[in-house]
Simulated scan of single mutants.
Amino acid sequence: MLILLPPSEGKKPADSGAPFDAEDLQFPALNPHRQQLLSALAEVSRADDALKVLAVGKSLVADVVRNIELHTEPSAPAHTIYTGVLFEALGYDRLDAAARKRADADILVISALWGAVGFGDRIPAYRLSMSVKLPEIGKLASWWKPKLTPVLNERAGDGLVVDCRSSTYAAAWTPPAENTVAVSVFQLRGGVRKVVSHFAKHTRGELAGHLLTRGVEVETPEELLEAASERWEAELVPGTGRKPHQLNIILPEDHAFKAVGN
């Protein structure tokens, strides 16, 4: 099983630790492309129009300045660098040792800077979104797609892919449709299903945490539906041709956040 997550836009910088070593990251075949982006990002971040190009506000100047010297910034495991609703709901620090081992093996974060990283890969905090268009590189999702496809197709193999990415990051790699289940989250409002992005992030994080803590490998879309149904109202929409399966999680009208394990 492979669980795909988007990164958080905000990152928590490591307090200490050695700089990242590209040779220690998963998918070393991506290292030349990572190096190209690191150089391009540093150049953009030095420019007078850096905030505009990176589509961030003045409050994030420190994040942009950090981009200039990422080779010397302290690094930490990706699961501590990425923050936000989804990662808090997944609750890596609340998992037992066996579930953490599964998280490190089964989770990939699709990244605008790194392409793809595992939860245990040591990276520095950075500021770069997949929606950004960098000079001489272009839109990052389009730039990454031909580079990620052969590498991640090999990693996915014929196993189940649980796709919890947002559309921005989903554009960077399309997994084999027949083995992929895209996770969608709705909430009932007045008896009608509505897309709720904040609840969607939280619920996808909860689903990832649930899959890691069950102790039973999920190998098919039907088994994923069974696992999700242990906690939520859920349905599986079969894929057709190039379209992946879709797992719909339907939250009740009175839904509220709950911490993993509670």
Rank of each mutant, 00 (worst) to 15 (best):
M1P: 13
M1A: 14
L4D: 10
P6Y: 06
P7H: 05
G10A: 15
K11F: 06
K12P: 03
P13V: 01
P13D: 13
S16Y: 05
G17W: 06
A18F: 07
F20Q: 15
D21R: 12
D24E: 12
P28W: 05
P28Q: 08
N31A: 14
R34K: 13
Q36W: 03
L37H: 04
L38G: 06
A42I: 05
R46V: 07
A50I: 01
G57Q: 10
K58M: 12
L60P: 03
V61E: 14
V64C: 09
E69R: 11
L70K: 08
P74F: 05
T83E: 09
T83M: 09
L86N: 00
D96Q: 10
D96M: 08
A98D: 15
A99C: 14
A99M: 06
K101R: 12
D104K: 10
I107L: 15
V109G: 00
L113K: 08
F119N: 00
R122N: 09
I123G: 03
I123E: 00
P124R: 04
P124F: 09
P124N: 10
A125W: 03
R127M: 01
L128Y: 05
M130K: 01
M130C: 02
V132E: 07
L134I: 01
E136T: 02
G138K: 12
G138H: 02
W144H: 11
K145I: 02
K145F: 03
K147C: 02
P150D: 04
V151S: 09
E154W: 03
R155K: 13
C164E: 14
C164Y: 08
S167L: 12
A170R: 14
A172I: 00
P176C: 11
N179C: 07
N179V: 01
N179S: 11
T180Y: 06
V181L: 07
V181E: 02
A182S: 15
A182Y: 04
L188T: 01
R189C: 05
G190D: 10
G190R: 04
G191Y: 04
R193K: 15
R193I: 00
K194T: 12
K194Q: 15
V195F: 15
K201H: 06
L207W: 10
T213Q: 15
T213N: 12
T213W: 06
V216H: 12
V216E: 15
T220Q: 09
P221I: 09
E222T: 08
E223L: 14
L224K: 11
A228H: 13
S229I: 01
E230L: 14
E230N: 11
E230H: 09
E230Q: 15
L236I: 01
V237S: 08
P238W: 07
G239M: 09
P244L: 09
H245M: 04
Q246V: 06
L247V: 07
L247Q: 05
I250R: 06
L251A: 15
P252E: 13
P252V: 01
D254P: 08
H255P: 04
H255G: 08
A256P: 02
A259S: 13
V260T: 02
